[in-house]
Amino acid sequence: MLKIEKLSVRYGTVHAVQDLDLAVAEGELVALLGPNGAGKSSTIEAIIGLVAAGGRVEMDGQDISRLPPELRIRRGLALSPEGRRVFAGLTVAENLRLAAATRRDRAGVRADTDRFMELFPVLRARMHQPAGTLSGGEQQMLAIARALMTRPRLLLLDEPSLGLAPRIVQRIFEVIAELKAGGMTILLVEQNAAHALRLADRAYVLGAGRLQYQGPARDLASDRLMSLYIGG
């Protein structure tokens, strides 16, 4: 579904990502792992179009690397960004409404809203509160619901568990598992490698902007992963 060839991201003279090849097939959950500063977020931002990048990004066989982010969304990509970035001054309902802005199926939007309220019951009570007043975990749930509201076929999750309490992290990963069970294709960026690998089909490990490992997630034993992280 998604195919990336020779992706490179540069900030001035610093190469954040170099010559990365990566692919995600339909129905897969792929984990993108690596230590801090390895280039994971830059990769995600390049896929969605928020940073300029060299190389090729393909969705369903079509080159999308020249498209602005909003048109990539319309091709079926969605991102729950790092740090959540909910619209703090808007209510939960307005956040969701914006995400549904490009959809024409009103009934579908209503059904989806109901579905997300079931998935994240905490949001239901807060529908008309400004999103900025939500807790970190609630904001993360809203960010995921918001990404889903655009009806993606490939969901990009950037650090969904960052800075959250263990109980909330547990819940977030339960939701990711449910989404996968429902057939959603997911590219998951995580610092919490153990959690991510338990769910993932395949994994890529980045180090210093380059690919260090790719293969089935279960083959990535913890000692191997450790050495990749430390830079063995």
């Binding site: 969605i48 928020l50 602005p68 909003e70 960004p81 619209f87 914006l98 995400a99 490009t102 990404a147």
Partner: peptide, 10 residues
Amino acid sequence: ATVRLQGIRA
């Protein structure tokens, strides 16, 4: 940037 992530044309 996040508005664009909702598929809304900047």
